[in-house]
């Protein structure tokens, strides 16, 4: 997920109207060989593995599947995953909006550098991110003694997991909102200000409605990644069953304990999350696509 791949841009719109006839008269078999190869490759690494999640979860019927869902460890893992997501998403949304505004509404030296810095968490391995947090807040970390004297536990506890999750999901909102803010320009905002609206009012009544789809998409991506993050959280959590075990950690643990059935029951929940993400993405893309031509008129 990189800045150059702007999913909210209506790039598919071009292909919708364009003729599907190849520019050069190709033999028909060329098309079908290419399509067939693409499908075969995708089947091997995408379709079959994705289908497998759903088949395996129900391989022994719905009964065992449902009983897996009532396992207390599983319920604890779901609860912890939701708590972390509910803390991280609002924080990163506020940051993302501030950063997007600062970048899109100002010209300053080092602007590109700042965008790259915000993208940094995507480039850093989640394990290295977790390591950084351990080096800061762990027992032998920078703030370790201080935290200990205050009787606060960050590593192997919820705060560390929130830090790790916030780190890996930091860029999403900013990077989805920046292009939208740049595109709508500042005319409407300035008009609102001239008419006497305050900063907050302008934001709530003018800016927010304009950026809502980009923001929504950023929120979707942040939530999905927050619920699915594994590496960074694994490093800082200690994976204490029932205490610091999130849903992805539960999946791995169950698999390692040869409880494949339980692993897939939990996996299907995360798989559904991915499906919902993809569907919402389609909806958001269509919305922006329909909106795009009308906006280009003014």
């Amino acid at each position: 997920m990189n800045s150059r791949v702007k999913p909210i841009e209506p790039f598919s719109a071009a292909s919708e109207g364009a003729a599907k006839v190849p520019a050069t008269p190709q033999p028909r078999w060329v098309k079908w060989v290419l399509v067939g190869t693409a499908i075969a490759y995708l089947a091997l690494i995408l379709f079959v593995p994705a289908l497998n999640v759903f088949v395996q979860a129900f391989s022994e019927g719905v009964g065992p599947f449902l009983s897996n869902l009532t396992d207390p460890d599983f319920i604890n893992a779901v609860r912890l995953t939701l708590i972390i997501t509910l803390i991280v998403v609002p924080i990163n949304t506020v940051f993302g909006l501030c950063a997007a505004w600062a970048i899109a509404r100002n010209q300053f030296p080092g602007r590109t550098l700042l965008i790259s810095l915000i993208d940094l968490p995507f480039s850093i391995s989640p394990v290295v991110a977790g390591l950084m947090i351990v080096l800061l807040y762990g027992q032998r970390g920078w703030f370790g003694p201080l935290l200990e004297s205050m009787n606060l536990k960050v590593i192997f506890a919820l705060p560390g997991m929130v830090f790790a999750t916030a780190f890996v999901t930091l860029p999403f909102v900013a990077r989805e909102v920046i292009p939208v803010l740049e595109e709508i320009g500042r005319d409407q905002e300035e008009a609102a200000k001239t008419l006497g609206s305050g900063d907050w009012q302008t934001f709530w009544r003018v800016t927010l409605p304009n950026i809502r789809w980009g923001l929504l998409y950023g929120l979707i991506l942040t939530s999905a990644r927050a619920m699915g993050e594994f590496g960074a959280v694994a490093v800082v959590s200690g994976n204490i069953i029932g205490k610091t075990q999130t849903l992805p950690l539960f999946v791995e643990e169950a698999y390692k304990q040869y409880q494949t059935q339980a692993a897939f029951s939990a996996a299907i929940l995360l798989g559904l999350l991915a499906v919902i993400t993809l569907i919402l993405k389609e909806i958001v893309e269509r919305r922006t696509r329909i909106k795009a031509p009308r906006e280009s008129l003014d």
Partner: peptide, 22 residues
């Protein structure tokens, strides 16, 4: 096909590992 290309972005890595391993 176009929509499913994004699945690796959306699918949590633990699930990807689990299903690929199986």
């Amino acid at each position: 096909m176009d929509a499913v290309i994004d699945l690796p972005f959306a699918l949590p890595t633990a699930v990807a590992g689990l299903t690929l391993a199986t």
